[in-house]
Amino acid sequence: MEKKLYESSYADLELVLKDEGASVEARKKAVKAAHVVTLTITYLFLVFMGIIMIFPFYWMLLTSVKSGAEIKQLAPTFWPTMGFRFDNYATAVSRLNFPILIRNTLIVGVISTLGTVVTTIMAAFAFARLEFKGKSFIFAALMATMMIPGEMMVISNYASVSLMGMTNGEPVGAFTAMIIPFMVSIFYIYLLRQNFKQIPNELYLAAKVDGKSDWQFLWKVMVPLAMPTITTILILKLMGTWNAYVWPNLIATGHTELYLITNGLRESFNATENYDEYGAQMAATVIVTVPLLLVFIFARKYIMRGVSRAGIKG
């Protein structure tokens, strides 16, 4: 397609150029040279931006295996010239109280993810397949809440869970407070509704003829068909818990044994200017970041599709 177009425009050019008495070959060469130059500039730009994007990751990995003495060199080294210091990782793990942090994050992450998926599937089904009064109004109202800054809710919710004694360090209460308010996501409902809507209505009618109830149809037909989108939701939600900072921090303030992974990371390394500790600090950030990158590498398709779908109107 592209080539054809070039050829045809060259053919036109030839006529014009012949009139002007210019060399067709020279003109062709100039066009080609311009193309090569643009392509080179494009790649240089992408490589430059790519280096900026990847540099913090490299620096994190590099610093995590440097000794304090090497970090304190005036000219930073781009490779650990004083040897790899893997004991930074041992320091980081012991400082972080890693088993407890992982346990808490998994408890909160798994339960809130499963809860979110169930509520999302049910609501998306109602919006995609069922007819009821006020459907479009409720859907629009839910969409509108996505615009409201979460801080509006955080304040009152914090007051509520405090009133219920969930912020005084009792684990069951604290985890409940971290899980329940986040068992619903309007964005995921929107995402899954779009997917459910693409499933042909004939399947629904066929299921009806077979005497299947809505409930059976939803779980036996719709859910398996929409599994890719549901997988996307599972992954994004789990990653969200892994990255959660604000709300767990409020609930667990003063009770380090209730911290989630990100709170543990921030609070374990809050002192600045202690260069001997920077290696261990970066080792800790590597420990927190690597699982995310692994998930990204193996589930790239699901993550990018889920994220990019947000930008498409529908």
Binding site: P56, M60, N243, T262, R266, T285, T289, L292, L293, V295
Partner: peptide
């Protein structure tokens, strides 16, 4: 896919 707090550090 990175943690805002971690990469901030």
């Amino acid at each position: 896919v990175t943690n805002a707090i971690a990469i901030g550090m």
